[in-house]
Design a binder for these strands. Structure first.
Length: 491
RNA sequence: CGGGGUGUAGCGUAGCCUGGUAUCGCGCCACAUUUGGGAUGUGGAGGUCGUAGGUUCGAAUCCUGCCACCCCGACCA
């Protein structure tokens, strides 16, 4: 296949789209804004799911599943929630098609109109809290710690593969608690789970923080988030964890009787990450040759490419290649032996680079002779000839090294792209010329935040949790500020 | 919803101005030679040119309408 290569430096957005296509992750479908996640892309998502799911269960959560459709009336019960989502809801109005007697075309049967329209879930708080009402009577029924893996639909005006699609896959945790303290603790705990996952599995450093009122989830008291920085200097919200207070409990009348025999509203949290993480992964590590995957997430961690000319060479090479394959597999490494004969080694090398496979092992007649292999790492492109006897202990170590290196590289990039500024001119200069996060003082008002956004296209990504408390003057208004916040242009 | 762009084979394209039934590359199939960085040769298959109408003896090409998608913004995970 002829591969069109686009450099990050030339056209970042074209580079991104091209990479998603060339690495065989996803493609546009015939439905606007919806994508087809291809097997290789889905395999990466499954690895993410597995890692997250394990962490959710370790923190006491169970999986459940709620319906795709939400009655419109449920949806409208929490005022700010409906405000936030109304503009992007897909609505089911009919349940049947029929052949039009005149045109012979298939049409929506006007007689099959639903009594009450159904909303295709953009998120499930409403239907879940409507259910929790029936599940909760006593403090003994609490907490409820549930997660669901699902698809949701948000009819966005503009979409982008993985980063913002009309339909996307995600998980949403929905928990119910007896006290505010416990709910806040849950919110923070899940934020930590996300941050741990992002940094240790995705190898993407994140800033943990809390959103300003403008950026808060519709219906939340507080929205916590993890924010990543992409290679083009734009920020990406990678996950959110909301403290919902008693908003949904009040909207859906979910009360419990306390030990003291008093009726109380239940406290709620919700938290989610989506296939957007695929976008974060791509934009954090990949280069002009293609995807770069951290080993802990790579569906294929090591690929073995055999090289041979004649039949007798093939026998010898394949024998060794298969032995190494078994050896690595036994160690729990996800290894693939690519024995396709219709493709040349050069093609395979390039293809696995596009796909981001962390380690490539090439073995040819020369290696068989010398009891060696050629080991190439994707992240640095370094190649080394390794004694075959060393494979067993060196490959796991190498994979670990690559994981660390990828993370470190992303961390270094981010460190170089957090700019601390004190004036408006510095602020604009940092955004325009240096890109990345800008740490600056803000007077704490929504009006100022709005104004800054208008003037600079930058938003407050978060108020970092680990934030030096420091008084200063707002970069726009000069009013008193008690701490710096993190601004950036964002996806 | 504003601005820009594109629709021709699985993918990428030429042809359109100046109308005569479609070019090239990749991929695909067969065979042979190849295989240590995207192999080569020979032969072959694959198209109602986005869609509906109009002009014309004749439309990928000219005219009108429509549709779809992509990119840049506003909205958002």
């Amino acid at each position: 296949m002829e591969i069109k290569k686009i450099k990050r430096s030339e056209d970042y957005s074209a580079w991104y789209n091209n990479l998603v296509k060339n690495a065989d992750l996803a493609e546009h479908s015939d439905v606007k804004g919806c994508m087809i996640i291809k097997p290789y892309g889905y395999a990466i998502w499954e690895k993410m799911q597995a890692e997250l799911d394990r962490r959710f269960k370790e923190t006491g959560h169970s999986n459940a599943y709620f319906p795709l459709f939400i009655p419109k009336s449920f949806f409208t019960k929490e005022a700010s929630h409906v405000d936030g989502f109304a503009k992007e809801c897909a609505v089911v109005t009919h349940y049947r098609l029929k052949v039009d007697p005149e045109t012979k075309e298939i049409i929506v049967d006007p007689d099959a109109k639903l009594e009450e329209e159904l909303i295709v879930r953009p998120t499930s708080e409403t239907i879940i809290w409507n259910t929790y009402r029936n599940w909760i009577q006593s403090y003994r029924d609490l907490p409820i710690l549930l997660n669901q893996w699902a698809n949701v639909v948000r009819w966005e005006m503009r979409t982008r593969l993985f980063l913002r699609t009309t339909e996307f896959l995600w998980q949403e945790g929905h928990t119910a608690h007896a006290t505010a303290e416990e709910a806040v603790e849950e919110t923070r705990k899940m934020l930590d789970v996300y941050a741990d996952f992002a940094e240790n599995i995705l190898a993407v450093p994140v800033v943990k923080g809390v959103k300003s009122a403008n950026e808060r989830f519709a219906g939340a008291i507080d929205t916590y988030c993890i924010e990543g920085l992409m290679q083009d200097g734009k920020a990406l919200q990678m996950g959110t964890s909301h403290f919902l207070g008693q908003n949904f409990a009040k909207a859906f009348d979910v009360k419990y009787v306390s030990k003291e025999n008093k009726s109380e509203y239940v406290w709620a949290t919700s938290w989610g990450v989506s296939t957007r993480l695929m976008g974060a992964l791509i934009m954090s590590h990949s280069d002009d040759e293609g995807l770069v995957l951290p080993p802990r997430l790579a569906p294929i961690q090591v690929v073995i490419v055999p090289i041979f000319r004649k039949a007798e060479e093939k026998t010898l090479v394949m024998e060794k290649a298969d032995a190494y394959f078994q050896l690595l597999k036994k160690q729990g490494i996800s290894v693939k032996l690519d024995d396709r004969e219709n493709l040349t080694p050069g093609y395979k090398f390039a293809d696995y680079e596009l796909k981001g496979v962390p380690v490539r092992i090439a073995i040819g007649p020369r290696d068989v002779q010398n009891e060696t292999v050629e080991v190439a790492r994707r992240d640095t492109k370094e190649k080394q000839v390794m004694s075959a006897a060393d494979l067993e202990h060196k490959i796991p170590h190498l994979l670990e090294q690559i994981q660390q290196n990828i993370y470190q590289k992303a961390l270094d990039y981010r460190s170089e792209h957090i700019h601390t500024v004190d004036t408006w001119d510095e602020f604009m200069d940092a955004l325009e010329n240096k890109t990345g996060f800008v740490s600056a003082h803000w007077d704490g008002t929504s009006e100022t935040e709005e104004k800054i956004k208008e003037l600079s296209k930058a938003t407050i990504r978060c108020i970092p949790l680990e934030n030096a408390q420091e008084f200063g003057k707002c970069i726009l208004t000069g009013n008193e500020s008690k701490e710096r916040v993190l601004f950036a242009r964002a996806y």
